[in-house]
Amino acid sequence: MNPIQEYFYRIDEPERSTLLFLRKKILESDPENISETLSFGLPFFKFKRKMLCYFYFSKKHQKHYISFYHGDRLNHPLLLQEGRKKFKILLIDMEEDLPVELILELIKEVKGHIK
């Protein structure tokens, strides 16, 4: 198992399946330009080798989240900055429907800010 797979398989269900589904959707949204690496022990998604977003777990909120680079340029009421300079996060509520369309739209917007 590669390190990225190991990251996901340390997460309990149903969170694991949810994050794997989101991972698949992100990678499929632009397979020629979006890649995945493990940085700081976390799965990072990159657009043309530039930082795009990553998954992590918030101890404060007790939820997984997706963190968007250039989040300081994104304006959406569900995004939280919480003192971060370049990133904003979107908490993933496992009890609700996933906002896949919103996530893909935010990724598209971040890609527009990457030069």
Rank of each mutant, 00 (worst) to 15 (best):
Q81N: 12
N33A: 12
F45Y: 05
L52Y: 01
I92W: 00
G41E: 11
K86D: 06
E6N: 15
H113Q: 14
N33V: 02
K111G: 09
H64K: 07
K24V: 02
M51F: 05
I107V: 09
L19V: 01
E105R: 10
V100I: 14
D72R: 03
R23N: 05
I107A: 00
T18M: 14
K46A: 14
S67T: 07
G83N: 10
P14G: 10
K48D: 11
G112I: 12
S29N: 12
M1R: 06
K48V: 09
L80H: 12
I114D: 03
L20N: 02
K59V: 10
Y56L: 11
K60S: 08
Y69V: 14
R23A: 03
F47V: 09
F55R: 00
R49F: 04
I11T: 07
P99R: 09
E96H: 09
G41P: 13
S29W: 12
H76W: 10
E96K: 14
E105T: 11
E101G: 02
F87D: 06
L98I: 14
L74Y: 04
M1K: 05
E101M: 01
T18F: 08
I34E: 00
N33D: 10
L80W: 05
G71R: 05
K85N: 15
D93M: 11
Y54V: 09
P99V: 04
E101P: 01
R84V: 01
L22I: 05
S58T: 04
L106A: 02
F87S: 09
S17K: 05
E6A: 15
L104E: 01
K24H: 13
Y56M: 13
F8W: 04
Y56G: 13
L104C: 04
L106F: 01
I114R: 06
D97Q: 15
E95P: 01
I26H: 01
H64M: 05
K50Y: 07
Y7K: 03
L38T: 11
E32R: 15
P99K: 13
L98R: 03
S39G: 04
F45S: 03
D72M: 02
S39Y: 01
H70R: 15
F45K: 00
E101S: 09
N2A: 08
E15N: 12
D93V: 11
L20G: 00
E96Y: 07
K24W: 03
D93T: 14
Y54G: 03
S29T: 13
S67A: 15
L78P: 01
S58L: 08
S29I: 13
G83P: 05
V110H: 03
K108L: 07
D12A: 15
L22C: 01
T18H: 10
F8C: 03
M51R: 11
L102P: 10
G83K: 12
G112M: 12
F44Q: 06
K24P: 00
E6I: 14
H113E: 12
